[in-house]
Design a protein around this nucleic acid. Structure first.
Lengths: 232, 232
DNA sequence: TGCTTCTACCTTACAACGTAAGCCTTACGT
DNA sequence: ACGTAAGGCTTACGTTGTAAGGTAGAAGCA
């Protein structure tokens, strides 16, 4: 019993940052519902209650994990080369680039929309990200009022996502049966499906390209704002 | 002990519909996190496990409650007087009216966004609602492709909501302290706040009118779609 | 009629969750 | 050297969803 030192000092000390990083990793890989105190502790080689020395509780972990993602977003956005803004219209591609950069981060952490809705966190990084967009809008000649409305119009798009319609997703057999059941009641949707589908190579259903659709909606909003900014 | 008949037959038989209605009521009044099997059962004067004879489980209750709300939405939309659509541009006010009608329903059940995101349900009523919007877009001269992109651009707005930014909400003292902390890092946002705020009568923070902002964003998207439809 | 089967309730029990309370060891300041 | 605090562990509790099985009465059938 002399080697206690070696046996007890089993790993490096736990830190708030390590806890949150692991939390993000778990949510990324197994979904946010798999993120439990016990599992998180276990993956860190520790008991659940030990986490409470570094974090306010489950809510604190959710907030902290979200904060990490938002930091990552701000970081990705900050790496973009600064726009020159010679023309007032240059605000638009600049904002577009920032939002798409934020989106690439969000795509690595698909649980963020869900969590952001449940707890509405106000983070420094998130605020700074929005602040940068506000600055660009101002440089584009927006009135403060238009900036304000514009932010609301963008909504969650500033963070790289939009509430997706629950369109049929995977080739679930049961879901397809349900669709067949209700198809008679939604003739226009069915027409759209059959019309747009056969342009694509793939299957009947998984034909919505998220990125394309996101950019389409984003540009629609940005174009509308640009028009309003120009006409005063 | 002869009056067993009267004492045992304590209420009308339980039904799936009654269960779901009560579920909606609880979520409306106390938030979706207060909706537990035991509480729901208790309010129905019954034991928790009895609910399983009428409903697939907690998930089934969530889905069912959501379905009830979506039915209500379709109902509200259907009550609108049908548009005449003399001019192709008439699609726009018609779609606008439908979406705002859906929104009034959603405002009575504020938990729906959260639940719709967690479980992405595909409901007949939801599909029919969207189907009606598709029909109007077609009447407005939309190509199928534009209809499709347009639906994605509208996103959750078709159901009367948008992912809200976590802007500072109630006059929470702690939140205000946090804001003061980070204010130096977000000069443009602070400027916007101070600029737009003093037009309003109320406090410094609660100055975003949800309905106004929702309609602004909605019209931005609709105007953009209208322009695209006209130019082919 | 009597027997069976089904339905809609109840009872009990369990595993998993977040977390309150408290103990034990280690490290460090004085 | 000793107090003290940090950071780990153990135990335990209340709440959650739900699996398993019991039971009384209605319904079907002989």
């Amino acid at each position: 019993m002399v080697e206690t030192t070696d046996a007890t000092r089993r790993r490096t000390r736990l830190t708030r940052d390590a806890v949150l990083r692991r939390a993000v990793a778990i949510a990324d890989e197994h979904g946010v519902e798999a993120l439990t105190m016990r599992r998180l502790a276990e993956e860190l080689g520790v008991e659940a209650m030990s986490l409470y020395h570094h974090v306010r509780g489950k809510d604190g972990i959710l907030d902290g994990a979200l904060e990490l993602v938002l930091d990552e977003m701000l970081d990705a956005v900050s790496r973009l080369e600064p726009p020159d803004l010679a023309d007032p219209r240059d605000w638009q591609p600049a904002v577009r680039a920032r939002i798409l950069a934020a989106r690439t981060v969000m795509l690595r952490h698909r649980w963020t929309p869900q969590v952001m809705e449940a707890r509405n966190a106000m983070t420094l990084s998130a605020a700074r990200h929005v602040d940068g967009i506000v600055a660009l809008m101002r440089a584009g000649g927006f009135s403060w009022d238009l900036v304000h409305h514009g932010l609301h119009a963008l909504g969650s798009r500033v963070h790289g996502f939009t509430q997706e319609l629950g369109e049929p997703e995977g080739g679930d057999a049961e879901a397809e049966a349900v669709l067949a059941q209700i198809a008679p009641h939604i003739p226009h949707l069915v027409a759209m499906f059959s019309e747009v589908a056969h342009d694509e190579p793939g299957s009947t259903l998984g034909w919505c390209d998220d990125q394309t659709e996101f950019e389409f909606g984003l540009d629609l909003v940005l174009d509308g704002l640009e028009r309003l900014a120009r006409q005063g």
